[in-house]
Design a protein around this nucleic acid. Structure first.
Length: 582
DNA sequence: TTTAAGATGAAGAGGTCA
DNA sequence: TGACCTCTTCATCTTAAA
């Protein structure tokens, strides 16, 4: 077993794969300690730099839109990228596109008297930034430098990359590419040539620009009463069974957008009932794949409405055995003797991060103690409402209680005592469990990997939490050759480490604490050492999406939930690096 | 300093009914 | 079809207790 923590990386001289290059501060890295990454401007700045935009564009876009509006900043950046320095270019945009040169002109907003804008126009700093971005895109420094010489420093990164690509096309023979499936670039361009990393990025940027125009149009016209099919938000299917559930008739075939096909496999999860438009945006970024909406009540005794976007096959899925109980009374048999006839619940609601207080259960006991087995309707209604709200179960006569952490572990499909011990408090256990995957549900989706990777898989696990993905794969009997796990919470990292040790894993566990530190160089280094990733899995924070959040339900622009864009950024980098190394 | 308790609504889906 | 209603929701913040 080889386990390496992020802190060990920094402190150990034995960490051979970590080169000195990795220690150099990249412009994509936020300043300060890794664990301090947050919503501040440097973080946003590095966030978008990591996506391949120039520093000046990012600064300008943040200045225009404010720090809080991540999606608008992104759309502005995509617009900048496509129109480059020529506002007139945007006039060639589709007629319905509301982006005018007046609104999004890049040059026209430059104040030549402003030293900041002067830096933007020209300067060594700008050249360095463009060089770095091009290198990060996968071009060699020589190619990047030659392109700047050819096109001039005023050229946009997009134009420079186009120029490099043109030079590559002139040099490379035709017919090089993936055998099957087609690459995203091939799909987009109809080319027979296997894509380079940047070539695909260009297509993506252009595609997103088009979509950003559509999105802008959507914002402008959505208030009108006319119904446009394209503008209809994603509908949540009913029943919420995704492509199917065990032992029921399932959909076994689907057509993925071609841009989504190809290594690595990926699997993204978040709350299904997010604010309107969130899943449209997530889907748009994740290669236009339709989300699979699944309620875990079909897999266990608790509801958990989640959506999953993945490019996994959906044929020949199989469930984990034994099949978990699907009713409260079967899952928690000790409650049967106390369960009143007038409480018709058979399943629990979503298991959240907080539980009911002792005072509430005391109030319920007092409300019931004056009555026999059949309290009056108003008392029943009050008690049932609180029971549904807090997932209370009957543990005695007139006595309800919140679930114990062990019971939550069991309902979510984790091993007994998975989160217990090792210094974790009861409150932290509830919080970590409330934020985790339902293992049986995820395992059902991942089960198709077992026959595809008989010798095990390399896993990049983003926002790992308490290791729901790792547990699911382990329970499926899929050997974990290498797991690069990124999780900010030390408590959660300790839980995963404990799982790794308790289950005698023989593979490598590399443990990082901040997704924002995973830049192209570091990913390439990891992938070079371990041979790439077979699966990129993660569920980014839901804090700003969840209905329970009364304070900061800000959608994907929220402080925590905007980390989705890091999932996308990292996934796109992994795809690009793997294509490049084919 | 850490942990737990208690108070804090709103968004959105879905059902019913006129 | 739209108004109205019920139900559900991977949470956050402040304060008190240990």
């Amino acid at each position: 077993m080889d386990w390496v923590s992020d802190s060990d990386e920094k402190n150990s001289d034995n960490f051979s794969w970590e080169t000195d290059e990795d220690d150099k501060e990249s412009p994509a890295d936020p300043p300060g300690e890794a664990s301090e990454a947050g919503p501040s401007q440097p973080s946003l700045y590095s966030h978008f730099i990591g996506m391949g935009f120039s520093g000046d564009m990012v600064e300008k876009a943040i200045k225009e839109n404010g720090e809080g509006n991540v999606e608008t900043i992104l759309e502005t950046l995509l617009t900048y990228s496509a129109i480059g320095n020529s506002p007139s270019d945007c006039e060639d945009a589709p007629a319905e596109c509301p982006v005018t040169s007046d609104e999004y002109s890049f040059d026209s907003d430059i104040d030549t008297d402003d030293p900041n804008d002067q830096d933007f126009i020209e300067g060594p700093q700008e050249k360095d930034k463009k060089l770095l971005i091009l290198v990060d895109m996968g071009f060699s420094p020589e190619e990047a430098d030659a392109a700047i010489e050819r096109c001039g420093l005023d050229s946009s990164v997009l134009e420079l990359a186009d120029s490099i690509h043109a030079a590559q096309m002139a040099e490379e023979p035709e017919g090089i590419g993936w055998d099957c499936p087609k690459t995203r670039f091939e799909a987009a361009e109809g080319s027979s040539y296997g894509s380079t990393r940047k070539k695909r990025s260009l297509i993506e940027v252009k595609r997103k620009l088009k979509r950003s125009c559509l999105s802008q149009r959507r914002r402008d016209y959505v208030r009108k009463s006319t119904v446009d099919f394209d503008d209809a938000p994603l509908a949540i299917p009913k029943p919420m069974i995704g492509f199917g559930i065990p032992f029921e008739k399932c959909i076994t075939r689907r057509s993925l957008p071609e841009a989504a096909i190809g290594p690595p496999y990926f699997y993204y999860e978040n709350v299904a009932l997010a604010p309107k438009g969130v899943w449209d945006t997530i889907s748009r970024f994740l290669y236009d794949i339709e989300p699979e909406f699944v309620d875990s009540k079909y897999f266990c005794a608790a509801a958990r409405k989640r959506a999953y976007i993945h490019n996994l096959p959906i044929e020949n899925r199989f469930p984990l055995l034994p099949i978990p109980a699907k009713t409260i009374q079967e899952a928690l048999p000790m409650t049967r003797q106390w369960w009143p006839q007038w409480d018709k619940r058979t399943q629990l609601n979503c298991l959240q991060t907080c539980i009911a207080s002792a005072k509430l259960t005391e109030r319920i006991r007092k409300a019931l103690e004056n009555y026999g087995d059949l309290p009056p309707p108003r008392v029943q209604e009050y008690v049932l409402a609180e029971c549904r709200k807090w997932n209370l179960v009957w543990v005695g006569h007139h006595k309800v209680a919140p679930l114990e952490p062990d019971e939550v572990e069991m309902l979510l499909g984790f091993p007994n005592n998975h989160t217990r011990g090792g210094g974790i408090s009861r409150t932290e256990r509830y919080k970590s469990l409330g934020n985790s995957f339902q293992v049986n549900t995820v395992a059902y989706h991942l089960s198709v990997l077992k026959s595809m990777f008989p010798n095990g898989i390399n896993l990049l696990s983003l926002f790992s939490g308490i290791g729901g993905a790792e547990v699911a794969l382990h329970k499926l009997g899929i050997h974990l050759k290498t797991v690069v796990s990124v999780e900010k919470s030390e408590v959660n990292r300790n839980i995963l480490r404990s799982f790794w040790e308790q289950t005698n894993q023989k593979g490598n566990l590399i443990d990082l604490d901040d997704v924002q530190l995973l830049n192209g160089d570091r990913l390439e280094s990891l992938m070079k050492r371990y041979g790439g990733f077979d699966l990129v899995i993660g569920g980014s924070p839901c804090n700003n999406l969840a209905g329970s959040n009364r304070h900061t339900r800000d959608g994907l622009e929220g402080e925590h939930s905007s980390l989705f864009f890091d999932y996308f950024r990292i996934l796109d980098l992994v795809k690009s690096i793997m294509v490049k190394n084919l």
